[in-house]
């Protein structure tokens, strides 16, 4: 009987290798949550006499939502490093808000016109939300249009020229010359060429994105492993199959490098252009209200631009990781 038990237990199913679970205390007893409580506690200090619009309830509401979100996704982390990073970032936000509250609403040590209490920034964001959405739509719409046009032109052209050794050599030098021109200087010429601010913006963003994507595609094609090319050649693939099913996926990493570069230049360009001559867009929003000395809305604009750029970058990275999921 005893022997049988031993035999049975000595041949268990292959154990699954699991990362050690993070203990509950390590998950939830963290300095970040202490900072949250401090942030709430600080709000009980009476506002400085000169401060009229602190909108403390907005700040408390914001902090509670952030904390609820933090607690909700804490159990989802599998690795300790990931959880630490996430909680550290939230901790920094709380710390920043504590200092911001003390130096603005509570002591008025910073001039109120330039440094509005954070609650006021939140309240203003909510009030302007419809206007902000229209501006985001305008900015992102222009960037997408210019950028997608650039992709559609640069990737096929880069593939064909990169694959053709002789034309590729010439194109590399030409693209070096054109990409060295800061795209912002195309704006005055664009204004002369095209009728509306929108079309000028799309044109400039097209130029700004085209060269990095084109250069990335060319360099991707030129650096495809010769063993991969040999493998395709001995399969007798047709020219279009070679370009679309072999060279394109093999160059994808470099193409994305060009895309990321093109996108970040596009955002810089567009917001600059919007500050010069637009009636819409996030750059316009920032410039317009700072001209009136409304620095609450200026800060709102800065923060929203940051969030939009991060959001777009995040989506592009997700797409990149998905399309390159076959890489180690």
């Amino acid at each position: 009987m005893a022997t049988a038990t031993i035999t049975a237990s000595s041949a268990p199913a292959a154990p699954k290798v699991k990362a050690p679970a993070i203990p509950l205390a390590q998950r939830f007893l963290r300095v970040t949550h202490l900072l949250f409580l401090v942030l709430l506690g600080v709000q009980f200090i009476p506002d400085h006499a000169s401060v009229t619009e602190a909108h403390t309830s907005w700040l408390i509401g914001f902090a509670v939502i952030v904390e609820a979100f933090t607690l909700a996704i804490t159990p989802l982390f599998k690795k300790k490093e990931g959880l630490n990073l996430f909680l550290d970032i939230i901790g920094f936000i709380y710390g920043f808000l504590i200092l911001w509250t003390i130096f603005t609403a509570k002591t008025a040590l910073l001039p109120a016109a330039l440094f509005p209490p954070f609650g006021k920034i939140l309240a203003q964001t909510a009030e302007d939300a419809p206007k902000i959405l229209i501006n985001i739509k305008s900015s992102v719409g222009i960037i997408l249009q210019g950028f997608i046009l650039a992709l559609l032109a640069a990737v096929p052209l880069g593939l064909i020229l990169g694959w053709n050794a002789r034309l590729g050599g010439a194109a590399t030098y030409l693209s070096k010359f054109f990409s060295s021109i800061p795209p912002i200087v195309y704006i005055p010429y664009g204004i002369a060429l095209l009728p509306t601010f929108r079309s000028v913006s799309v044109f400039v963003i097209f130029l700004a994105s085209f060269w990095p994507v084109f250069a990335g595609t060319m360099s991707g094609v030129l650096h495809v492993d010769s063993k991969i090319l040999d493998s395709a050649k001995v399969l007798n693939v047709s020219k279009p199959t070679m370009l679309l099913n072999v060279i394109l996926p093999a160059s994808l990493n470099q193409i994305f490098l060009g895309c990321n570069q093109g996108l970040s230049v596009s955002f810089i360009l567009l917001t600059s252009a919007e500050m010069i001559g637009a009636r819409d867009g996030m750059g316009y929003y920032v410039k317009y209200y700072s001209d009136f000395g409304d620095y609450t809305r200026t800060i709102v604009g800065l923060l929203v631009i940051g969030i939009v750029v991060i959001g777009v970058t995040f989506l592009v990275n997700r797409l990149q990781n998905y399309l390159l999921r076959w890489k180690k």
Binding site: D225, K227, I228, D230, S231, A232, V234, N236, N245, V246, P249, A250, L252, W326, K327
Partner: peptide, 15 residues
């Protein structure tokens, strides 16, 4: 097309 090839490395496409 009458010849099939197996290389030492990278016969397959990684994607």
């Amino acid at each position: 097309k009458e010849r099939g090839v197996v290389f030492q490395h990278y016969s397959l496409f990684p994607w």
